[in-house]
Lab assay of single mutants.
Amino acid sequence: TFELKGKVGKVVKIAEDHYLVESEGDKWIAYSDEKLSLGDRVMVVDVDGLKLKVKRIP
């Protein structure tokens, strides 16, 4: 299986209740415990079905 946990991506869209993150050339629906901005670099900390939980990284 394709393992996304630990992968790095970038926030490419902000929606009302989720983010769109591009990682490894694909776009994924993501959510975070912190507020993210367009262009933020993020790391995948968990995968919930087809949704990614991400956190901001420097």
Rank of each mutant, 00 (worst) to 15 (best):
T1N: 15
T1Q: 15
F2V: 15
F2I: 15
F2N: 15
F2D: 15
F2W: 03
F2M: 15
F2H: 15
F2Q: 15
E3L: 02
E3I: 01
E3W: 04
L4A: 13
L4G: 15
K5D: 15
K5L: 15
G6K: 00
G6L: 01
G6T: 01
G6H: 01
G6Y: 02
G6F: 02
V8A: 05
V8I: 14
V8C: 11
G9W: 02
G9R: 01
K10R: 12
K10V: 07
K10E: 11
K10A: 09
V11F: 00
V11I: 07
V11M: 02
V12N: 05
V12H: 05
K13L: 10
K13M: 12
K13F: 10
K13C: 12
I14Y: 09
I14N: 06
I14M: 12
A15C: 10
A15V: 10
A15E: 07
A15T: 10
A15G: 08
E16H: 09
E16A: 12
E16D: 09
E16R: 13
E16I: 13
D17Y: 13
D17Q: 11
H18W: 10
H18E: 11
H18K: 09
H18Y: 09
H18A: 10
Y19L: 09
L20R: 07
L20T: 10
V21W: 15
V21Q: 01
V21D: 00
E22V: 08
E22W: 12
E22Y: 12
E22K: 06
E22F: 13
E22S: 05
S23M: 15
S23V: 15
S23Q: 05
S23F: 14
S23A: 15
S23E: 03
E24M: 05
E24N: 03
G25D: 05
G25P: 05
G25W: 04
G25R: 03
D26L: 14
D26T: 13
D26G: 10
D26I: 13
D26M: 14
K27C: 12
W28S: 02
W28H: 10
I29A: 12
I29P: 04
I29Y: 13
I29C: 12
I29L: 10
A30M: 12
A30D: 00
A30W: 01
A30H: 00
Y31N: 12
Y31L: 11
S32R: 07
S32Q: 02
S32N: 04
D33H: 12
D33F: 13
D33K: 13
D33W: 14
D33N: 11
D33L: 13
E34N: 07
K35T: 09
K35S: 08
L36S: 00
L36V: 04
L36Y: 06
L36P: 02
S37G: 07
S37Q: 08
S37M: 11
L38K: 06
G39C: 13
G39Y: 14
D40S: 12
D40C: 13
D40I: 09
D40L: 09
D40G: 05
R41Q: 10
R41G: 11
V42W: 01
V42G: 00
M43F: 08
M43R: 02
M43S: 05
M43H: 04
M43D: 04
V44D: 01
V44R: 01
V45L: 11
V45Y: 08
V45H: 05
V45I: 09
D46K: 02
D46N: 03
D46V: 03
V47N: 03
V47K: 03
V47Q: 06
D48F: 14
D48I: 14
G49C: 08
G49Q: 09
G49Y: 11
G49H: 10
L50Y: 14
L50K: 07
L50Q: 09
L50V: 08
L50F: 13
L50A: 09
K51E: 06
K51G: 10
K51Q: 08
K51R: 13
K51H: 09
L52G: 02
L52C: 03
L52D: 01
K53M: 11
V54Q: 00
V54A: 02
K55D: 08
R56A: 06
R56N: 04
I57N: 06
I57H: 10
P58N: 08
P58T: 10
P58D: 11
